[in-house]
Protein backbone atom coordinates (compact mmCIF):
# COMPACT_ATOMS: atom_id res chain seq x y z
CA UNK A 1 0.00 0.00 0.00
CA UNK A 2 1.32 3.35 -0.90
CA UNK A 3 0.10 5.15 2.18
CA UNK A 4 1.92 2.87 4.55
CA UNK A 5 5.11 4.70 3.68
CA UNK A 6 3.68 7.72 5.36
CA UNK A 7 3.09 5.87 8.58
CA UNK A 8 5.96 6.90 10.76
CA UNK A 9 4.92 5.62 14.12
CA UNK A 10 4.23 1.96 13.42
CA UNK A 11 7.04 -0.45 12.73
CA UNK A 12 7.41 -1.74 9.19
CA UNK A 13 7.00 -5.38 10.14
CA UNK A 14 3.49 -6.76 9.96
CA UNK A 15 1.93 -6.63 13.42
CA UNK A 16 1.24 -10.02 14.92
CA UNK A 17 -2.52 -10.21 14.57
CA UNK A 18 -3.04 -13.17 16.88
CA UNK A 19 -1.15 -11.53 19.71
CA UNK A 20 -3.06 -8.27 19.27
CA UNK A 21 -6.43 -9.97 19.14
CA UNK A 22 -5.48 -12.09 22.11
CA UNK A 23 -4.56 -9.08 24.16
CA UNK A 24 -7.76 -7.18 23.51
CA UNK A 25 -10.06 -10.14 23.84
CA UNK A 26 -8.13 -11.00 26.97
CA UNK A 27 -8.87 -7.59 28.42
CA UNK A 28 -12.55 -8.09 27.67
CA UNK A 29 -12.47 -11.54 29.23
CA UNK A 30 -10.86 -10.15 32.36
CA UNK A 31 -13.51 -7.43 32.55
CA UNK A 32 -16.16 -10.11 32.22
CA UNK A 33 -14.55 -12.19 34.94
CA UNK A 34 -14.24 -9.17 37.20
CA UNK A 35 -18.01 -8.98 37.23
CA UNK A 36 -18.08 -12.05 39.43
CA UNK A 37 -15.34 -11.12 41.85
CA UNK A 38 -15.31 -7.38 42.28
CA UNK A 39 -16.67 -5.92 45.50
CA UNK A 40 -19.85 -3.91 44.96
CA UNK A 41 -18.28 -0.50 44.98
CA UNK A 42 -15.61 -1.37 42.46
CA UNK A 43 -18.18 -3.24 40.42
CA UNK A 44 -20.36 -0.12 40.16
CA UNK A 45 -17.36 2.07 39.53
CA UNK A 46 -16.07 -0.15 36.77
CA UNK A 47 -19.46 0.01 35.03
CA UNK A 48 -19.15 3.75 35.00
CA UNK A 49 -15.50 3.70 33.98
CA UNK A 50 -16.25 1.47 31.01
CA UNK A 51 -18.90 3.90 29.78
CA UNK A 52 -16.59 6.87 30.20
CA UNK A 53 -13.79 4.93 28.55
CA UNK A 54 -15.97 4.79 25.44
CA UNK A 55 -16.01 8.57 25.55
CA UNK A 56 -12.22 8.52 25.85
CA UNK A 57 -11.87 6.00 23.01
CA UNK A 58 -14.01 8.21 20.85
CA UNK A 59 -11.79 11.12 21.69
CA UNK A 60 -8.76 9.03 20.89
CA UNK A 61 -10.05 8.39 17.38
CA UNK A 62 -10.02 12.11 16.71
CA UNK A 63 -7.01 13.13 18.73
CA UNK A 64 -4.81 10.08 18.95
CA UNK A 65 -5.24 8.70 15.46
CA UNK A 66 -6.23 11.70 13.40
CA UNK A 67 -4.39 14.46 15.24
CA UNK A 68 -7.57 16.51 15.74
CA UNK A 69 -7.05 18.23 19.07
CA UNK A 70 -10.65 19.07 19.96
CA UNK A 71 -11.51 21.00 23.09
CA UNK A 72 -15.23 20.52 22.56
CA UNK A 73 -15.97 16.83 22.80
CA UNK A 74 -18.34 17.50 25.67
CA UNK A 75 -20.84 18.60 23.02
CA UNK A 76 -20.90 15.12 21.52
CA UNK A 77 -21.21 13.46 24.89
CA UNK A 78 -23.92 15.92 25.85
CA UNK A 79 -25.74 15.42 22.54
CA UNK A 80 -26.02 11.72 23.30
CA UNK A 81 -26.88 12.31 26.94
CA UNK A 82 -29.56 14.90 26.30
CA UNK A 83 -31.09 13.28 23.24
CA UNK A 84 -31.53 10.01 25.09
CA UNK A 85 -32.70 11.75 28.25
CA UNK A 86 -35.12 14.15 26.60
CA UNK A 87 -36.86 11.56 24.46
CA UNK A 88 -37.20 9.39 27.56
CA UNK A 89 -38.65 12.30 29.51
CA UNK A 90 -40.96 13.79 26.92
CA UNK A 91 -41.62 11.13 24.29
CA UNK A 92 -41.60 7.98 26.43
CA UNK A 93 -38.92 6.43 24.27
CA UNK A 94 -37.12 3.78 26.26
CA UNK A 95 -33.57 2.56 26.25
CA UNK A 96 -32.78 0.98 22.87
CA UNK A 97 -34.55 3.72 20.94
CA UNK A 98 -33.23 6.46 23.19
CA UNK A 99 -29.72 5.13 22.85
CA UNK A 100 -29.89 5.11 19.07
CA UNK A 101 -31.39 8.58 19.02
CA UNK A 102 -28.56 9.72 21.27
CA UNK A 103 -25.96 8.30 18.94
CA UNK A 104 -27.69 9.84 15.96
CA UNK A 105 -27.80 13.21 17.67
CA UNK A 106 -24.07 13.12 18.33
CA UNK A 107 -23.40 12.15 14.71
CA UNK A 108 -25.63 14.99 13.58
CA UNK A 109 -23.71 17.48 15.71
CA UNK A 110 -20.46 16.17 14.25
CA UNK A 111 -21.77 16.41 10.69
CA UNK A 112 -22.90 20.01 11.18
CA UNK A 113 -20.79 21.79 13.80
CA UNK A 114 -17.91 19.37 13.35
CA UNK A 115 -17.96 19.81 9.61
CA UNK A 116 -17.71 23.56 10.07
CA UNK A 117 -14.96 23.28 12.67
CA UNK A 118 -12.91 21.09 10.35
CA UNK A 119 -12.62 24.00 7.94
CA UNK A 120 -9.91 25.14 10.33
CA UNK A 121 -6.91 23.35 11.74
CA UNK A 122 -4.43 23.42 14.59
CA UNK A 123 -5.11 25.89 17.35
CA UNK A 124 -8.03 27.40 15.47
CA UNK A 125 -9.67 23.99 15.50
CA UNK A 126 -9.17 23.86 19.26
CA UNK A 127 -10.87 27.20 19.72
CA UNK A 128 -13.70 26.60 17.28
CA UNK A 129 -14.58 23.30 18.92
CA UNK A 130 -14.29 24.96 22.31
CA UNK A 131 -16.66 27.71 21.21
CA UNK A 132 -19.18 25.33 19.69
CA UNK A 133 -19.17 23.26 22.85
CA UNK A 134 -19.66 26.40 24.92
CA UNK A 135 -22.58 27.37 22.68
CA UNK A 136 -24.12 23.92 23.16
CA UNK A 137 -23.65 24.31 26.92
CA UNK A 138 -25.43 27.66 26.86
CA UNK A 139 -28.18 26.34 24.60
CA UNK A 140 -28.92 23.72 27.24
CA UNK A 141 -29.41 26.58 29.70
CA UNK A 142 -31.39 28.59 27.20
CA UNK A 143 -33.92 25.81 26.84
CA UNK A 144 -34.09 25.40 30.59
CA UNK A 145 -37.83 24.80 30.46
CA UNK A 146 -37.12 21.37 29.03
CA UNK A 147 -33.57 20.65 30.14
CA UNK A 148 -33.86 22.13 33.65
CA UNK A 149 -30.52 23.83 32.97
CA UNK A 150 -27.82 23.22 35.53
CA UNK A 151 -30.05 21.14 37.80
CA UNK A 152 -30.76 18.63 35.12
CA UNK A 153 -33.37 15.93 35.52
CA UNK A 154 -33.79 12.33 36.47
CA UNK A 155 -34.40 9.90 33.63
CA UNK A 156 -37.69 8.10 34.42
CA UNK A 157 -37.08 4.56 35.67
CA UNK A 158 -39.64 3.13 33.31
CA UNK A 159 -37.56 4.30 30.36
CA UNK A 160 -34.40 2.68 31.62
CA UNK A 161 -35.23 -0.73 30.22
CA UNK A 162 -33.34 -2.69 27.62
CA UNK A 163 -35.02 -5.75 26.11
CA UNK A 164 -37.09 -6.10 29.25
CA UNK A 165 -34.06 -5.83 31.52
CA UNK A 166 -33.76 -3.17 34.19
CA UNK A 167 -30.73 -1.03 33.40
CA UNK A 168 -30.57 0.06 37.04
CA UNK A 169 -29.84 -3.49 38.05
CA UNK A 170 -26.11 -3.82 38.78
CA UNK A 171 -25.60 -6.93 36.68
CA UNK A 172 -27.53 -5.62 33.71
CA UNK A 173 -25.78 -2.29 33.99
CA UNK A 174 -22.34 -3.88 34.14
CA UNK A 175 -23.02 -6.16 31.20
CA UNK A 176 -24.52 -3.35 29.14
CA UNK A 177 -21.52 -1.17 29.85
CA UNK A 178 -19.22 -4.05 29.00
CA UNK A 179 -21.03 -4.69 25.73
CA UNK A 180 -20.75 -1.06 24.74
CA UNK A 181 -17.14 -1.02 25.83
CA UNK A 182 -16.36 -4.13 23.85
CA UNK A 183 -17.97 -2.66 20.76
CA UNK A 184 -15.97 0.54 21.05
CA UNK A 185 -12.74 -1.26 21.86
CA UNK A 186 -12.97 -3.71 19.01
CA UNK A 187 -14.22 -0.94 16.76
CA UNK A 188 -11.17 1.14 17.63
CA UNK A 189 -8.91 -1.81 17.06
CA UNK A 190 -10.45 -2.61 13.71
CA UNK A 191 -10.23 1.00 12.72
CA UNK A 192 -6.62 1.35 13.81
CA UNK A 193 -5.70 -1.61 11.65
CA UNK A 194 -7.86 -0.70 8.68
CA UNK A 195 -6.94 1.29 5.63
CA UNK A 196 -8.98 4.16 6.97
CA UNK A 197 -6.99 4.12 10.20
CA UNK A 198 -3.70 4.16 8.33
CA UNK A 199 -4.78 7.05 6.21
CA UNK A 200 -5.82 8.93 9.34
CA UNK A 201 -2.43 8.32 10.92
CA UNK A 202 -0.80 9.46 7.69
CA UNK A 203 -2.84 12.66 7.86
CA UNK A 204 -1.88 13.14 11.48
CA UNK A 205 1.80 12.72 10.70
CA UNK A 206 1.87 14.80 7.57
CA UNK A 207 -1.29 16.31 6.23
CA UNK A 208 0.23 17.88 3.12
CA UNK A 209 1.83 14.65 2.11
CA UNK A 210 -1.42 12.75 2.49
CA UNK A 211 -3.12 15.37 0.37
CA UNK A 212 -0.40 15.11 -2.23
CA UNK A 213 -0.90 11.37 -2.35
CA UNK A 214 -4.44 12.08 -3.48
CA UNK A 215 -6.43 11.62 -0.30
CA UNK A 216 -9.39 13.86 0.32
CA UNK A 217 -8.10 14.95 3.71
CA UNK A 218 -11.22 16.82 4.70
CA UNK A 219 -13.48 13.86 4.10
CA UNK A 220 -11.22 11.55 6.03
CA UNK A 221 -11.12 13.95 8.93
CA UNK A 222 -14.87 14.36 8.91
CA UNK A 223 -15.26 10.60 8.92
CA UNK A 224 -12.89 10.33 11.87
CA UNK A 225 -14.61 13.11 13.76
CA UNK A 226 -18.05 11.60 13.13
CA UNK A 227 -16.94 8.17 14.31
CA UNK A 228 -15.38 9.84 17.30
CA UNK A 229 -18.61 11.69 18.03
CA UNK A 230 -20.62 8.50 17.63
CA UNK A 231 -18.59 6.85 20.38
CA UNK A 232 -18.76 9.94 22.58
CA UNK A 233 -22.51 10.19 21.99
CA UNK A 234 -22.98 6.49 22.66
CA UNK A 235 -21.15 6.97 25.94
CA UNK A 236 -23.32 9.96 26.79
CA UNK A 237 -26.58 8.20 25.96
CA UNK A 238 -25.49 5.11 27.87
CA UNK A 239 -24.44 7.23 30.83
CA UNK A 240 -27.84 8.88 31.06
CA UNK A 241 -29.74 5.64 30.71
CA UNK A 242 -27.53 3.59 33.02
CA UNK A 243 -27.09 6.14 35.79
CA UNK A 244 -30.39 7.94 35.47
CA UNK A 245 -29.29 11.56 35.42
CA UNK A 246 -28.97 14.20 32.74
CA UNK A 247 -27.41 17.56 33.62
CA UNK A 248 -25.59 20.50 32.10
CA UNK A 249 -22.38 19.88 34.01
CA UNK A 250 -21.69 17.09 31.53
CA UNK A 251 -21.64 19.66 28.76
CA UNK A 252 -19.22 21.99 30.53
CA UNK A 253 -15.67 22.53 29.38
CA UNK A 254 -14.44 20.18 32.08
CA UNK A 255 -15.97 17.29 30.21
CA UNK A 256 -14.07 18.33 27.11
CA UNK A 257 -10.83 18.32 29.06
CA UNK A 258 -11.40 14.99 30.82
CA UNK A 259 -11.22 12.76 27.72
CA UNK A 260 -8.11 14.62 26.60
CA UNK A 261 -6.60 13.95 29.99
CA UNK A 262 -7.60 10.28 30.05
CA UNK A 263 -6.23 9.75 26.57
CA UNK A 264 -2.97 11.55 27.21
CA UNK A 265 -2.53 9.67 30.44
CA UNK A 266 -3.15 6.23 28.98
CA UNK A 267 -1.42 6.95 25.69
CA UNK A 268 -2.79 8.78 22.70
CA UNK A 269 -2.98 6.66 19.58
CA UNK A 270 -3.10 3.38 21.49
CA UNK A 271 -6.26 1.30 21.51
CA UNK A 272 -6.18 0.42 25.20
CA UNK A 273 -4.69 3.70 26.40
CA UNK A 274 -7.98 5.59 26.83
CA UNK A 275 -9.39 2.85 29.05
CA UNK A 276 -6.24 2.69 31.13
CA UNK A 277 -6.22 6.45 31.52
CA UNK A 278 -9.87 6.49 32.58
CA UNK A 279 -9.33 3.77 35.17
CA UNK A 280 -6.23 5.39 36.61
CA UNK A 281 -7.75 8.84 36.76
CA UNK A 282 -10.87 7.54 38.51
CA UNK A 283 -8.93 5.68 41.16
CA UNK A 284 -6.46 8.49 41.56
CA UNK A 285 -9.30 10.82 42.52
CA UNK A 286 -11.15 8.19 44.49
CA UNK A 287 -8.25 6.96 46.60
CA UNK A 288 -6.66 10.32 47.24
CA UNK A 289 -9.98 11.92 48.12
CA UNK A 290 -10.43 9.29 50.80
CA UNK A 291 -7.03 10.13 52.26
CA UNK A 292 -6.97 13.89 51.94
CA UNK A 293 -9.27 16.75 51.09
CA UNK A 294 -6.46 18.09 48.96
CA UNK A 295 -6.92 15.43 46.35
CA UNK A 296 -6.83 17.90 43.51
CA UNK A 297 -3.32 18.77 44.61
CA UNK A 298 -2.34 15.13 44.36
CA UNK A 299 -4.07 14.77 41.00
CA UNK A 300 -2.25 17.84 39.74
CA UNK A 301 1.12 16.60 40.90
CA UNK A 302 0.54 13.16 39.44
CA UNK A 303 -0.35 14.68 36.10
CA UNK A 304 2.82 16.69 36.10
CA UNK A 305 4.91 13.70 37.12
CA UNK A 306 3.29 11.52 34.47
CA UNK A 307 3.94 13.94 31.71
CA UNK A 308 7.53 14.39 32.86
CA UNK A 309 8.31 10.70 33.03
CA UNK A 310 5.78 9.13 30.66
CA UNK A 311 5.47 11.83 28.03
CA UNK A 312 3.65 9.62 25.54
CA UNK A 313 1.21 8.38 28.09
CA UNK A 314 1.62 5.06 29.82
CA UNK A 315 0.89 2.74 26.93
CA UNK A 316 2.59 5.06 24.47
CA UNK A 317 5.76 4.80 26.52
CA UNK A 318 5.34 1.06 26.94
CA UNK A 319 4.97 0.70 23.19
CA UNK A 320 8.03 2.80 22.56
CA UNK A 321 10.23 0.94 24.98
CA UNK A 322 8.97 -2.60 25.25
CA UNK A 323 6.10 -3.62 22.99
CA UNK A 324 6.48 -2.08 19.56
CA UNK A 325 3.60 -4.20 18.21
CA UNK A 326 1.01 -2.62 20.51
CA UNK A 327 -1.74 -1.07 18.41
Amino acid sequence: MSESTAVLSTPPAAPPTARILGLHLGVLAVLFALHFVLPDYHHISLSRIMVLACFAMGYNLAFGYSGLLSLGHAMFFAAGLYAAGLVAQFADIAAPGGFLIGVAAAALVALTLGAIALRTGGVSFMIVTLMFAQAVFLIIYYFGTYTRGDEGFVVPDAMRVLLGLDLADPTVRYMTALALFAACLMGSLALARSNLGRVLIAIRENEDRARMLGYDVYRYKLTALTLSAVMAGAAGAAYGLLFGYVGASFASIQYSIYPLLWVLMGGAGTVLGPFLGTVLMFYLVDLTSAATTAYLLVVGLVLIALILFFPKGILGTVRERYLPWLP
Binding site: V154, V155, A168, G247, S249
Partner: peptide, 23 residues
Protein backbone atom coordinates in the same frame (compact mmCIF):
# COMPACT_ATOMS: atom_id res chain seq x y z
CA UNK B 1 -21.34 -0.22 49.01
CA UNK B 2 -17.91 0.44 50.42
CA UNK B 3 -18.22 2.34 53.66
CA UNK B 4 -21.34 0.42 54.61
CA UNK B 5 -23.12 3.59 55.66
CA UNK B 6 -26.59 3.38 57.09
CA UNK B 7 -27.70 6.57 55.36
CA UNK B 8 -26.34 9.30 53.14
CA UNK B 9 -26.84 12.89 54.13
CA UNK B 10 -26.04 16.54 53.81
CA UNK B 11 -26.05 17.61 50.16
CA UNK B 12 -26.81 21.21 49.30
CA UNK B 13 -26.46 21.94 45.60
CA UNK B 14 -29.47 20.87 43.58
CA UNK B 15 -27.62 19.38 40.65
CA UNK B 16 -25.64 17.16 42.99
CA UNK B 17 -28.84 16.05 44.72
CA UNK B 18 -30.59 15.30 41.45
CA UNK B 19 -27.54 13.51 40.07
CA UNK B 20 -27.13 11.41 43.22
CA UNK B 21 -30.74 10.65 44.13
CA UNK B 22 -31.37 8.01 41.44
CA UNK B 23 -28.38 6.06 42.70
Amino acid sequence: TQHGCDIAFGTLFSHVVIGSAPR
